[in-house]
Design a protein around this nucleic acid. Structure first.
Lengths: 153, 153
DNA sequence: CGATAATTGTCAGGTACCGAACGAATTGGA
DNA sequence: TCCAATTCGTTCGGTACCTGACAATTATCG
């Protein structure tokens, strides 16, 4: 098994908010993907279906904004979903834009799916003080926004 | 430009610790990479050099553990660094293992590099209450470990 | 109206991560 | 001693993210 005696003093970045945010993000994603693997879905693919189910047909550019993805990134995810026949990508009045709609097959699959976000969250935050969670969210939100502002600014 | 009136109630996952951890992680990485791009380095490549500079020659398997990367992932990163002649990958007594050492060229490059972690951290945590940061780290650490524990079972 | 600017999606190329499977080397046990 | 189990690195296939460049379309303004 694992050696539990990992108390060597690690360098600075290994004990920072950034390092733990990264580690939590990957742990989270790994668990979500292990839950979704039997259904042949990736985590971001799941988020796209979630939006289409709960918001209805959506313009691709709006979806990118909602999910905080670049156009190029979403383009690939959507292509995968279309190839699997779970999502339909239609052209509307404005011939540049694409309207995304979940297909019947997509809805059937969706209804058979567990909610990987809820499952993972329940495990992750089990025993955590709600007030601490609030503080953690505040710190992360402010940190993310300050860094994002610097790149765009 | 952007409409600043984005206060529509977003679904649960968009206001969770997980969502903000993800967003902070990517903002962080984007900034680190924009700092390192002029030097032709990626963020994980930088972490490898950091370890080799501050810890000295290291077995590849130990480095993987320290950086929390899978063997397969590190293998690719190391191959890139070797191709750039920044790192040397040598075989030792145990012919299965590889000893990694930074090259002279690697050290020269390293000495010309800014520290992207410090720069980004300074921006991210500017104005944050140190006590809140401690709490955020505690929450993230516990969340990451609980999720990791569940995958490993 | 027509040239120019902005928007939208896609592609190409790059980074970073994973799991599964493989081969070579080493270790351990019968 | 010798074979099975383990370790270590790599390769392969897949996901998710980015930037930069491009074509097509639509909007804007002289």
């Amino acid at each position: 098994m694992g050696d539990a005696s990992d108390n060597r003093p690690e360098p600075d970045q290994h004990s920072s908010v950034g390092a733990w945010a990264k580690r939590y993000y990957f742990a989270n994603r790994a668990m979500m993907e292990s839950i979704l693997r039997p259904y042949g879905l990736g985590s971001t693919q799941w988020f796209v279906l979630y939006e289409l189910v709960n918001t209805g047909p959506t313009m691709q550019r709006d979806l990118a904004q909602r999910l905080h993805l670049e156009r190029a990134t979403l383009s690939g995810v959507v292509a995968t979903l279309v190839r699997k026949a779970l999502v339909e990508q239609a052209t509307g009045d404005d011939q540049r834009q694409r309207l995304l709609t979940i297909t019947d097959a997509g809805r059937v699959l969706w209804n058979s799916l567990p909610d990987p976000v809820e499952i993972t969250k329940a495990i992750a935050l089990d025993g955590a003080d709600p007030a601490d969670i609030e503080i953690a969210i505040r710190v992360l939100k402010s940190a993310a926004e300050q860094v994002e502002g610097h790149v765009a600014g």
